[in-house]
């Protein structure tokens, strides 16, 4: 029987920014901005060290929904505001809640908080085809 999705359904996805993740993501994405790979430059920029690429955090929010719906090819849209930097060894908890299911399109609101309970994303929304 095909899986059904209902408004109000929730899901959780946890990801750790391991020490070299910003460097691995730099290699894969091409985003070598020094604030992501050089702690000294990150400090100079007032960020307290190297920070993870926001687009990697966005990728994790997408991943949370891809795992929930069971197929990364069904992701239709993502929208996020980056509200706080993610640093090495931060653990980010993505909590999703289905806001609507309409015409085969699932819309989920995602919160993303670090181990101190601070939001690293705001207003995050991911849509997926489930038809």
């Amino acid at each position: 029987m095909p899986r059904t999705f209902q408004p109000g359904d929730t899901f959780t996805h946890v990801r750790e920014c391991d020490r070299y993740r910003p460097i691995y993501y730099a290699g894969a994405s091409g985003d070598y901005n020094p604030i992501h790979i050089d702690p000294e430059v990150g400090k100079e920029a007032g960020l307290g060290g190297a920070i993870l690429q926001g687009l990697c955090t966005l990728g994790w929010a997408v991943e949370a929904v891809a795992v929930f719906v069971g197929d990364p090819g069904r992701i239709r849209r993502v929208r996020v505001r980056f509200s706080k930097p993610v640093r090495a060894e931060d653990v980010i908890t993505f909590q999703g809640k289905v806001r609507s299911v309409q015409d085969g399109l699932l819309t989920a609101e995602i919160s993303a908080t670090n181990q101190r309970g601070e939001d690293v994303l705001k207003g995050a929304v991911v849509e997926a085809f489930i038809g």
Binding site: N33, Q53, L55, L58, R77, V80, F82
Partner: peptide
């Protein structure tokens, strides 16, 4: 560049 951060992002697939 040093003062730049990525503020928001939307992608439609």
């Amino acid at each position: 560049m040093l003062m730049l951060v990525h503020g928001e992002q939307e992608l439609e697939f």
